[in-house]
Design a protein around this nucleic acid. Structure first.
Length: 273
DNA sequence: CGTTACCTGAAA
DNA sequence: TTTCAGGTAACG
């Protein structure tokens, strides 16, 4: 569900609320046996309490709680995961609450996940979670030339390359479609056939589209809510995503939908070549 | 490289 | 009844 703008919005919400707080309890539902990675669930529940949350950070679509003793508590929301800060416990209030964490100021962090694809880790080293993630698109490390080079060396559809977290971190199905529209590129076009000028436009479009979506606190098409349980607003501003049959804002041609790499894909057949 | 599996519920 | 869903790992 959540892509970079959504996860970053959650991070910004949570950071002032939980920084400096000690975790005093941890519970994971028996109904979510795949939630905790690398460690047995019981071990995770035993090890987490006692740590202080020193900061909340993010890497791509991963939300990271930087804990005392150098530990990292990492959460990936996948399709329907939510992390909310609450002043009441989460047990029993919603059937999809899969984990809950008590803090030392009597507040709670609740992890909710309808489809149970979400995952979490407790590690002392980021590389145990993911060791080949690409640059952050909204930071200096996202440079044009290495990006153009990764397009050059691959023959898959350019959209599939945008979804590859090794090329650039944090883009998902919404913002891949939006960035390709902004750059005027057909999502089905082979990455290595995208011209250098168009590739350059795409590099800029990625930054622009993600920045704009972050300004709208993310897109709530279905399940996404922020760290306080509120919806974002950027879904009201998308140019092509889920606008099948509606007129392109630039040329009035109806937006088309197709499948690329198994993912639903939206584009303007006139503006995008 | 493209496709399937992982889950559950809503929409077509 | 079938298809579809902000993701990604594991297949062949």
């Amino acid at each position: 569900m959540p892509e970079l703008p959504e996860v970053e919005t959650i991070r910004r919400d949570l950071q002032p609320l939980v920084t400096g707080r000690k975790i005093v309890s941890a519970w994971v539902s028996e109904d979510a046996p795949r939630l905790v990675q690398l460690l047995p669930t019981a071990e995770f529940e035993r090890l987490l309490p006692g740590h202080v949350i020193e900061d909340v950070s993010r890497r791509g679509k991963y939300l990271v709680f930087n804990l005392s003793e150098g530990m990292l508590w990492v959460v990936h929301l996948r399709m329907t995961g939510r992390v909310k800060h609450q002043w009441t416990g989460c047990a029993g209030t919603d059937p999809y609450n899969r984990a809950s964490f008590g803090l030392d100021d009597e507040t709670w962090l609740c992890f909710n996940d309808l489809r149970k694809f979400g995952m979490m880790w407790l590690v002392d080293d980021w590389s145990l979670v993911k060791d080949d993630i690409g640059p952050e698109p909204l930071e200096d490390g996202f440079e044009r030339d290495p990006f153009l080079a990764s397009l050059k060396r691959r023959s898959a559809p350019v959209k599939s390359i945008l979804l590859d977290q090794r090329v650039v971190a944090g883009i998902g199905n919404i913002y891949a479609d939006e960035a390709l529209f902004a750059a005027g590129i057909d999502p089905r076009k082979a990455a290595n056939k995208v011209s250098r000028p168009k590739g350059t436009l795409l590099h800029k479009a990625i930054i622009d589209v993600l920045t704009e979506a972050l300004g709208g606190r993310g897109s709530s098409f279905r399940d996404y809510v922020d760290g306080k349980g509120n919806e974002g607003s950027h879904h009201l501003k998308v140019r092509v995503f889920r606008r099948t049959g509606e007129p392109c804002y630039v040329c009035d041609t109806p937006i088309k939908r197709t499948k690329v790499g198994g993912r639903s894909t939206h584009y303007c057949p006139r503006c995008q070549r």
